[in-house]
Each structure stands twice: as C-alpha cells, then as structure tokens.
C-alpha cells in the first residue's frame, strides 16, 4: 500500500520547522506505524537525506516513549493504542497523513517528531513517590488494602507518561498525567503519609513547568492509550483543595518531638 506523509521537520529546538511531504510506496498492512517510518527512514538514509527522528523504545505499548500526532490526534485514530501498536491495516492505500510532534511549551521539540518530556520527570520528582525504609521486605498482606482502592490505584498506575493528554488538551494541560500519579499513590495506604504534600507540590510544579489548566473537555481521556479517566482529575482537585487548607510544610532542621 502507498501512504503519503506530511511530516514536521525541525532541526533543533531553536530552529523553525516546516511540513515536508514524503511518499512511502512500499508499506504493507502488517507493519506497525513505526515500522512504516523505519522503511521511510531507510529510504531517506539511502538517498543521503536526514532520517525522520521519532522517539521509540519497547514498541509494545508499555514504555511511554513513542507518540506523535497523526492527523491531529495523539497516537493516531485507534483508541487505547500507542503509535507503536498502531498497525497500517487501519489505514487505506493512498491515505495522506499529517505527522506532528506533541506541542506544548513544556514539551520543547528536540528534533522532528521528538519532544523533551523531562517536565514530567520533574513533576514526579516533586512528589510522585512514597518514602519507605529499606531493609527486609514487609510480610505479605501485613498492610490491608481495600480491594476497590487497589483496583482504582492500579487503573491510575497504568499511565505510561507518554504525554498524549498534554498534546490533545486544548490548553496543553498535564492534569490527566499528574492526577493519575496522585491517584495511583494517594489511594493506597502506603501513600497516605505524604498525600497532602504530594498533591500540593505536584500541582504547583505542574503549574510552574508551564502546563495549562483543565477545562474538563475530556479530550485527554479520549486519546489516552491506557484509558486513564478524568475522574482522577477531580480526585487531584479534591486532594489539592484539602492540602491547600491543611498542609503544613516541614521546616529544615529541628527534630520531631
């Protein structure tokens, strides 16, 4: 099958980018979308041109590395699928597609379709963790976990941090990502000790990284390859409101007593 691609080419973060048209005449329906791009890149390399840069790692839909816009939708037209797991059988011979990087101030373009998502890492570092003592493993089931909470925490934990939520959001908000991390830890007993601090710091970090705000459009939920629900965003708002009212920041120095 033949696929026509309009791909955003941008040399680096500071240079201006533009759409360039390519044809892939020898794609077939069994290829994944990334394999189809591999074929294009081999051809470009053979011709001595610069291959198209895109991020990828596991190609199994679980690492969160890949992702770009296909016709204005992150990860393309197939719901609940990362772009590496999107197969060419969902397209037709002669289709013309538009590929662009995820766009947000907090996601600067590194090159072509690859963006720098370290802002997500910095948000996680600000509060997306629990503190436990190292040493021998605790006894199994020593800490009771309510089944419903563990299920909902697991649903939130499915987030792979790909950034499709930011990319699809009309306001470039990271609310779905941040709320998934807050919901993942905040619903488990292990996450209670730092629950207020986590909500407070992660929301403020998200704000300072330059992400937008949530207007409850549901666009993120619709494109999330892991089906994260905006119910989590409401939970983040609840936790943040509560933390704002009651959270007490620890001061440096001084012991407990």
């Amino acid at each position: 099958m033949k696929i026509i691609l309009n791909i955003w080419r941008q040399q680096n973060a500071t240079s201006a980018g533009r759409m360039v048209r390519y044809e892939v005449p020898n794609a077939n329906e069994h290829m994944s979308f990334l394999e189809m791009l591999d074929v294009l890149n081999e051809e470009l390399t053979r011709k001595g041109e610069d291959p198209v840069t895109f991020e990828h790692d596991c190609r199994e839909g679980i690492c969160g590395c890949c992702g770009f816009m296909i016709d204005g939708v992150p990860h393309g037209p197939q719901r609940g699928t990362t772009v590496c797991q999107l197969h060419m059988r969902h397209f037709h011979d002669g289709d013309e597609l538009w590929l662009e990087p995820f766009r947000a101030k907090a996601f600067p373009v590194i090159k072509d379709l690859m963006v720098d998502r370290s802002a997500f890492d910095r948000i996680i570092a600000s509060g997306g963790f629990i503190s436990v003592n190292t040493g021998s493993a605790p006894d199994g089931n020593a800490l009771p976990v309510i089944k419903k909470c563990s299920d909902m925490a697991m649903d939130a934990a499915a987030c792979i941090g790909c950034g499709a939520c930011v990319a699809s959001c009309p306001n470039a908000s990271a609310s779905l990502f941040v709320s998934a991390k807050i919901s993942h830890l905040g619903q488990l007993p292990q996450g209670q000790a730092e629950r207020d601090r986590r909500a407070s710091r992660m929301v403020l970090k998200m704000t300072d990284e330059g992400f937008g705000y949530c207007t409850n459009t549901g666009e993120c939920e619709a494109v999330c390859p892991k089906g994260i629900k905006i119910e989590n965003i409401a939970r983040m708002h609840r936790d943040y409101i509560k933390a704002s009212a009651t959270f007490r920041e620890e001061t440096s120095g001084g012991g407990a007593g």
Partner: peptide
C-alpha cells in the same frame, strides 16, 4: 498545530 482534531 498545523492540524488538530477534536474528538471529545
């Protein structure tokens, strides 16, 4: 975006 779809 050069092209952006609204699906929800």
């Amino acid at each position: 975006y050069v092209k952006k779809a609204h699906i929800a």
